[in-house]
């Protein structure tokens, strides 16, 4: 039995990651789920949040927004519209995005773009926490 699984993260613009890992935790649409090697075939939609994986005793973090994860044959493929490793996240941009989103939601009462605004806020917060977790784990 293999004790690692192959994790691949691809976005339309690039292949973000392809690595053998020991554990993956991902933000599923119905909540967090964990994947260990030799997982049964599994297909899930992803929400906005942080994916993290362990390899060589270290934890790494990747921000993902909207996408799918497929686990089959000891391989996990993540198709995300946006994916950024913790080390690639522009923390200032995320902070500004969050401020903008807060200002907008404070102003608008019955905004039709409320959902969009919420999503922007969640993305910004997830990016910031991803960066933070990454630096705590010493991997970015």
């Amino acid at each position: 039995m293999a004790n690692t699984l192959l994790l691949e993260i691809v976005t339309p613009d690039r292949k973000v990651l392809s690595e053998d890992v020991e554990y993956v935790g991902a933000p599923g649409a119905l909540g967090e789920f964990g994947v260990l090697p030799n997982h049964i075939p599994f297909l899930s939609a992803l929400g906005i949040g942080n994916l993290h994986y362990k390899t060589g005793g270290k934890s790494y973090y990747v921000f993902v927004a909207g996408g799918f994860a497929e686990v089959s044959g000891n391989k996990m493929t993540v198709l995300a519209e946006v994916a950024e490793k913790a080390s690639e996240i522009d923390i200032d941009r995320a902070r500004k995005a969050r401020e903008r989103a807060e200002q907008r939601s404070a102003k608008a009462k019955e905004n039709v773009d409320w959902a969009r605004n919420q999503a922007a806020m969640r993305r910004a917060i997830a990016r910031m926490s991803c960066r933070e977790s990454g630096s705590q784990a010493g991997t970015c």
């Binding site: 599923g28 789920f33 075939p41 297909l43 899930s44 939609a45 799918f68 089959s72």
Partner: peptide, 27 residues
């Protein structure tokens, strides 16, 4: 033909996939 576990459900996943399919085609 593997037996997948689908989350939330096949219909739920399709509802997510289909709009993306259009975006993929446009892109």
């Amino acid at each position: 033909s593997q037996e997948f576990i689908y989350e939330p459900s096949v219909e739920g996943l399709l509802a997510e996939l289909l709009p993306r399919f259009i975006k993929v085609q446009v892109y």
